[in-house]
């Protein structure tokens, strides 16, 4: 078992594919999360906005539909529809599924982050918004400079969780012909149909990544807490 793994991994340079797969997994998760944070923050702001006027009410409904749509369907289905249905329908061909995966992960994560962010914004003392408005700052400026930074600090652990979820969910991108970490490890077992060692190593790699992310989030939290003392 081990000999075969070593042969595939080292002698035949399977590690090159694994490193490429790792890079793609991390790329999709990081870029997806960044897009998700941008979209999620915008949606969260729309959803907590006062609803006296028509426009915020309409936007709120649209954002509500968006969130339900992306939370109500599995990521793999969104990926399949995006790559195999939507793009061909629009007559768009792409050289690689990676950008498609990044966008789908971003859109999907945006829906989740918006709910996380909404909770974060609601957890910030309303007096912060009032004080910003009282010195003449606009709603948007107060939101971006005062409320959202405090909200982000409150939700950092949850955002870290979202990143971990994304890292693990990247294994579905093999459906659109992208070789990620999961697929690259699986390939090590394909020539012999023996997956014991590749799967164990795959699990170990995911675990190490998740532990690193958790440690990183904790370090960031401590740093942010310290900076406000």
């Amino acid at each position: 078992m081990w000999q075969e793994f070593v042969k595939q991994f080292i002698t035949r340079k399977g590690y090159v594919n694994v490193l490429n797969g790792l890079a793609i997994t991390v790329e999709i998760a990081i870029l997806g999360l960044l897009i998700g944070i941008v979209i999620g923050t915008l949606i969260a702001i729309v959803r907590v906005m006062p609803k006296y006027k028509l426009l915020p009410r309409v936007l709120d409904k649209i954002c509500g539909c968006y969130v339900e749509l992306f939370r109500g369907t599995p990521m793999v289905v969104q990926l399949l529809i995006g790559y195999w249905v939507l793009l061909p329908a629009l007559d768009v061909q792409v050289n690689s599924g990676v950008p498609v995966a990044v966008i789908v992960f971003g859109l999907n994560s945006g829906a989740y982050v918006s709910e996380i962010m909404r909770g974060g914004i609601n957890s910030v003392d309303p007096g912060q918004m009032e004080a910003g408005r009282a010195v003449g700052l606009s709603y948007a400026t107060t939101m971006m400079k005062i409320v959202v930074p405090q909200a982000v600090k409150n939700i950092l652990p949850t955002l870290g969780n979202e990143f971990i979820v994304l890292i693990k969910e990247t294994s579905v991108v093999s459906f659109i012909a992208v070789t990620d970490l999961y697929k690259s490890f699986k390939q090590l077992g394909d020539p012999t149909y023996n997956y014991t060692v590749p799967y164990l190593m795959l699990a170990l790699t995911y675990l190490v990544m998740v532990l690193l992310i958790s440690a990183g989030v904790r370090a960031l939290e401590t740093k942010l807490k310290k900076s406000e003392k």
């Binding site: 035949r12 340079k13 399977g14 090159v16 390939q187 394909d190 012999t192």
Partner: peptide
């Protein structure tokens, strides 16, 4: 679907 020896499978890199 290169997971299907001996018809198609991946092994190593070049």
């Amino acid at each position: 679907n290169a997971e299907f020896a001996p018809w198609e499978y991946a092994s190593g890199a070049e």
